[in-house]
Structures are given as structure tokens and as C-alpha cells.
Amino acid sequence: MSRTEGAAPVWDAERLRIATDAAGVALWAWRVETDEITMDARAERLWGVPTDGGVVSFTALSSRIHPADLDRVRAAFTSTRDIPGEFELDFRILDGQEVRWVAARGQGEDHAGAGQRMFGIFLDVTERKLAEEDRELLAGEMSHRVKNLFAIAAGLTQIAARSATTPEAMAADLTRRLYALGQAHELVRPTLLNERKATTLGALIAVLLGAYDDKGTIGDRIRVRVPELPVGEGSITTLALVVHELATNSLKYGALSAAAGRLSVACDADDDAATIVWTETGGPPVTAGRGEPGFGSTLVHRSIVRQLGGSIEFDWAPEGVVATLRVSKARLAV
């Protein structure tokens, strides 16, 4: 083979198109003076906007840009009219109800004036952005859970102290409650040697809430009345996270923080959905501040919607909070 045959390939239009197709790269060119953006077929599919021979205006593209990002994108594009050079921006676009992340990269011509163009690419970076959001959520969840563990330990100590007559009795009671929490943790944590098994809704809630009752078992001031609905191994962790969050908040602010407090968990089901009603009574008066969304509330909503195909609503009644969870029975059993 000669040196010419072994040299780097010639990057003609055909070979460039092969490379960009392999990388999922969409091409665009923006004529600054007329505000015309020429896009290739891949870019047209990404944006989902009708074009006139591949040409569209920035105004037309703006209708697809997420409202929260529109001003930022418009300002970035406008600034390039006066400052030729590199362009780099990530933003969201809307495709019906679907939100997609787009990375725009470009390079302006060296000279300014009439006919100036900017050339660049669009990349669909939705999966990467969602992965970054999931990592941030996981880090926040870990921090949130650690804080909750301290709150749970303090709350269980107070519960144990209410009925204990000696330090030894209190220590034994607290140890039993912490052991019950450990059992609940093992129930929702699969291991390589012991795969997580499906269970029923009543059994799962009883295990999760057992440590919070005055006697360390369900039935004293915590009542659970739910049908024997199957809970699949894929839904156990999600449901446990929601119950754990509600119980922690109750232990810190609600019925479980007071000696006279009571908690009832009931469930009704039809052919398609299960409605779980969490009702607290006898605790401190509920204030509006408890209803303000925080990280835990965001985590619960996201888990219910994404994993269980349902919803959660709160009634912040002065006598006690009522949380209503609606979940898909099909999702619950998976």
C-alpha cells in the first residue's frame, strides 16, 4: 500500500455526513443579517418544526424552546451578532409534552458585516442531562436520609422514654425499635445472596411502621387497614421511601411526635388503582408551614409519579395531616 493509500481519509461531504450520522450530530447555519437558520434533516427532526427548504427563522424555533430557557437562549443568540466567535449553550426544547435537552455549538465567521454566518451543530443530550439530574437527586437523597436518621433516632428515644420506668427498660425498648427499623431496611434492600421478594401491601406497611408504635408493634396507636394487595419487588423500595418520609415527618412534627397522637393507614382499591389514605390525629396543631415543599416532598412526588404511576395530595387540616396516595395496581405489582 502506498503512502497516499495509507494516509488520513479525505473529509469530503460524503465522509463528513457518515461521521455526523454516526455521532447523531445535526447541522445548522445561521445568517445573522436575515435571521435565517438553515438546518439539515436531522436538525429538522430534532426540533419538529416545519421549514421552507430547510430554512427557518429563530422566531419560529423560539416556539419550541422551553419558556424557562427562552430568555437565556435569545440573549445568547443576540450577543453573537456583535461578537463573532464560538457559541456554546445547553437548553431545553418541547416536543408536545416531552422535554428534550439540546446542546448547541457554533462558530461565527471571522469577519463582521453583511452576509455574516455562524455554523454549528445540535446534539440531543437528553439522556446525559437526565443522568446528571438523577445523580444530583441521589446525592440530595443521601443527605436527606442521613438527616432523617438523626431525627428518627431522637424521636424513637422520646417514644421509648414515655413508657420506660428504668434506664434499662428504656435501653431495651429503644434497641427493639432500632432492630425493627433494621428489619424494614433489609426488607427493601436486595442483596446478591438474598434477592428481594414480593410481599403484600399490609405486610410491608406493618414492617415499616412497627418501630414507631408505642409498644414497638402495629396496633397500639398505629392502625393499618389495607387489602392484601401484591407489591412486586420493583415497587417495594419506592413505596418504602414514601412511607418512611411520611413517618419521619410525623415523628418530627405530627401525630407520632405526641403521646396522644394516632395514625391510621387505610386503603381502598378498584380494578385499576389503589388509594392509600394516611390520616394523623391527636398531634400538635398543623400549620401551613409544614405544607411547604422541600426536598423530601419533591422526592415523594417524583417517586409516586415516575415509579408508581400515581399521585399524592396533602390536606393540611389543623387537627392532623391527611395524605392521599393513588397508585396504579399494575405498577404496584411489578
Rank of each mutant, 00 (worst) to 15 (best):
T4A: 15
G6K: 15
A8N: 09
P9S: 00
V10N: 09
R17C: 06
A23G: 05
I37P: 07
A43W: 01
G48M: 06
A60L: 13
S63H: 14
P67A: 08
D69T: 06
V73A: 12
S79L: 13
G85T: 02
E88H: 15
E88I: 10
E88S: 15
L89Q: 15
I93A: 02
L94P: 00
D95S: 14
G96K: 02
A103H: 06
G108Q: 01
E109L: 07
A112P: 02
Q116W: 12
G120C: 03
D124V: 00
L137K: 12
H144G: 08
V146M: 10
V146A: 11
F150E: 02
A151Y: 05
A154C: 02
A160L: 05
R162N: 11
P167S: 07
R176I: 08
A180E: 08
H185D: 13
G202I: 08
A206R: 12
V207G: 07
G210H: 02
D214L: 15
T217G: 04
I218C: 01
D220R: 08
R221C: 05
V224L: 09
V224D: 05
G232N: 03
G234P: 02
S235D: 04
L246Y: 11
L246R: 05
L251I: 12
K252Q: 13
L256M: 06
I276W: 01
I276D: 08
T279H: 15
G289A: 12
E292D: 14
F295H: 06
V300D: 00
H301P: 05
R306C: 02
I312Y: 07
I312C: 07
V322M: 02
T324F: 05
L325G: 08
V327R: 05
S328F: 00
A330T: 01
R331L: 12
